[in-house]
Simulated assay, not measured.
Amino acid sequence: MTVKSPVNGGSMTKRIVVVASGRGSNFQAVIEALQRKWIPGECVALVTDNPKAFAIERAQEAGVPVVVVDYGSYASRELYEQALLAALKEARPDLVILAGYMRILGSAIVREYAGMMINIHPALLPSFTGLHAQRQALLHGVKITGCTVHFVDESLDGGPIILQRSVRVMDDDDEDTLANRILIQEHIALPEAVRLFCEDRLTIEGRRVRTRL
């Protein structure tokens, strides 16, 4: 039996929180789509585990509040995740976007935002999960790779897939050149997935995500 689960609650303008660890180029792509009013939402916070992340500068330029939950300042992962969960709850998000967040989330956070948290991964899942997906693609000799936006569950890069974009692997590609071409597609895919979510057009049916036209 297929159980249909509504992804979100149907409010007109979604409150979006982005969680990032590094340069934040996917965060920037979402911000620009929001600024163009292409996405019916508002980015209410950038949350980062890295006080030196360049994403912080991007947020400040866009007028987005920044919350730093510095992983290195906590005595254990458990304490860090408690603080991260508290920061997310404080922002009251309708959607949490993992955009270059370089840690695996614990089950408490994943369960709290089930159906409300998405991730962008630089491979065509279910292939090449985890770190260094571009390197994995090159080592396996695939001819096509790409990026995937998916809902987050308790598996590693294994949640229901929202959308994917493909990239051809060239014979002379190295990890950097391939990563750069995939990143171009990430900047298209992530805002599109966020838009679909914010327009209440996604429904999870088991492992599949249905998109309403």
Rank of each mutant, 00 (worst) to 15 (best):
R208S: 11
P160V: 01
I56N: 05
N8Q: 09
A55P: 07
G100L: 02
V167Q: 06
F54T: 00
V44C: 12
L196Q: 07
I144D: 10
R77M: 08
V19P: 05
G130N: 12
E78M: 04
P122Y: 07
A123S: 15
H150D: 07
R168Y: 13
Y74H: 13
D200K: 10
N180P: 02
L88K: 03
A179D: 12
L139E: 15
C198F: 10
N119F: 15
V152M: 04
P93I: 04
N50S: 06
P126E: 11
Y80N: 03
H187G: 02
S21K: 02
T145E: 09
A179L: 14
M12G: 05
P191F: 13
P126V: 07
D70P: 02
E90D: 13
F128P: 01
E186H: 13
I161Y: 08
V68K: 06
E205K: 10
I97Q: 07
I162E: 00
P6C: 02
C198T: 01
E192R: 07
S25D: 06
N50L: 05
L163W: 04
D174I: 06
K143Q: 14
C198Q: 08
I97T: 09
E154I: 14
D200G: 03
P191M: 12
P51S: 07
L98Q: 07
S73Y: 07
P65L: 09
L95V: 10
R92P: 00
F128H: 12
S25K: 05
R168V: 00
M116S: 14
L178A: 00
V68D: 04
Q35W: 10
G115E: 11
G72H: 14
T2K: 15
Y113R: 02
D153M: 08
G10Y: 14
W38N: 11
P51V: 06
D157T: 01
D172G: 05
G158H: 12
V194D: 09
D70K: 03
E205T: 04
A29E: 04
S107W: 11
V194L: 07
Q136L: 10
T148V: 03
V44Y: 07
A20R: 02
V47E: 05
V110G: 08
H121A: 06
Y74A: 04
L213G: 03
R201N: 06
A55Y: 02
Y80S: 04
K52F: 13
S166V: 08
V152G: 03
R168C: 04
I39F: 10
R135K: 15
A114E: 13
L183D: 05
D153E: 06
V18P: 03
I56K: 08
I56E: 06
P65A: 01
L125N: 10
M116I: 04
V110S: 05
E42Q: 15
